[in-house]
């Protein structure tokens, strides 16, 4: 009951956020975004032709009306048609989001999982060589550009200069085997890049936690290092860990996959968004922007509920 009330209240306060995000993005898009008209009218158009296309695109309406239309589209979940292909926006998203999720999730999960494990390990050995080694490796991992990492993995694993084990580009997935084949190299690249940042973050959280009084108490009662770290300390670290993981979700799903998808030629939502930005395909952009905002609100709600779940002191009010 408490949970339901809280969720409703949280969703209600999320509405202004969604409105704010969509309004700002919409204004930026209208005033600074590319104009689709001239792409569609062809060479040497007459004034009537231009006016006709603009009317078709809805550009002739006042901005306020266009924004309200946008909101109505969101509420009715009728997101319109792509200006470029004429395909339904909802159909495009339904096709591309699962692909993006399938590409991004393994790297996201493994990057955080290994980050926490390495962080625990380094925190346990803090100040001595395993810690120093991991931290140095993390610093190196953080210093290499994502692009270099992607290209290096592609050359090493997917080209005839290297092992040539995996396809370089594309997404031709019909079975688990195909999936593994196409997802491995992007995943390795993502994990490689994320691991340094994650490990450093998680290590500092865990080291901080090891100085707490309850850790000394547990040791004074003979608690071995294993359960001490994996149970007592880890559960106390869950709030910063959950925060970091949850709040990176909207970016991983929508924008984080942009580089990966364009370099690996994967037809995911990142690629679609990128193309929409370049060509000024406003219906798609509007949908993606709104989706990101809604996802952020949902993630916040879910994060708060998870806090409650790991820390009994958190009250949902």
């Amino acid at each position: 009951m408490e949970l339901l009330q809280y969720s409703l209240r949280k969703i209600a306060t999320g509405i202004p956020l969604v409105i704010g995000v969509t309004l700002i993005s919409f204004l930026l898009m209208v005033y600074f975004g590319p104009d689709k008209t001239y792409e569609l009218v062809g060479k040497n158009p007459t004034a009537e032709q231009i006016a006709e296309v603009r009317a078709e695109l809805g550009y002739d309406q006042p901005v306020a009306v266009r924004y309200l239309d946008y909101l109505r589209e969101l509420v009715t979940l009728d997101l319109g048609f792509s200006d470029s292909t004429g395909e339904r926006v909802s159909a495009i998203l339904a096709r591309t989001i699962p692909i993006s999720a399938a590409v991004a999730l393994p790297g996201f999960i493994l990057g955080n999982l290994f980050g926490v494990l390495l962080g625990l390990f380094a925190a346990f050995y803090r100040g001595v060589w395993p810690d120093k080694f991991i931290m140095a490796a993390a610093a190196i991992g953080m210093s290499i550009s994502f692009l270099i990492v992607i290209i290096a993995f592609q050359i090493l694993l997917s080209s005839s200069y290297g092992l040539n084990l995996f396809p370089v580009r594309g997404w031709d997935v019909h079975s688990i085997g195909d999936y593994v084949l196409y997802v491995t190299v992007p995943t390795l690249a993502t994990v490689f890049v994320a691991l340094g940042y994650n490990t450093r973050f998680y290590r500092s959280v865990i080291v901080e936690e090891t100085t707490r009084d309850y850790v000394r108490t547990a040791r004074a009662f003979g608690m071995p290092a294993g359960p001490l770290y994996y149970k007592l300390i880890l559960k106390n670290c869950m709030i910063p860990i959950i925060t970091r993981i949850m709040f990176s979700i909207p970016f991983v799903v929508i924008s984080g996959s942009l580089l990966i998808e364009s370099y690996f030629g994967i037809p995911g939502v990142g690629k679609v968004t990128y193309d929409a930005i370049v060509t000024g395909d406003q219906p798609i952009l509007k949908a993606v922007v709104a989706l990101t905002a809604v996802l952020l609100v949902a993630v916040q709600l879910l994060t708060d509920i998870m806090y409650r779940w790991v820390d009994p002191r958190v009250a949902l009010k």
Partner: peptide, 22 residues
């Protein structure tokens, strides 16, 4: 570790923080 908590026990000053909060 075998001795701690079984043969010799210790209690601490800060009752607010000495127990695990979660």
């Amino acid at each position: 570790r075998e001795i701690r908590g079984s043969d010799i026990s210790m209690i601490f000053q800060e009752p607010m923080t000495a127990l695990n909060p979660v």
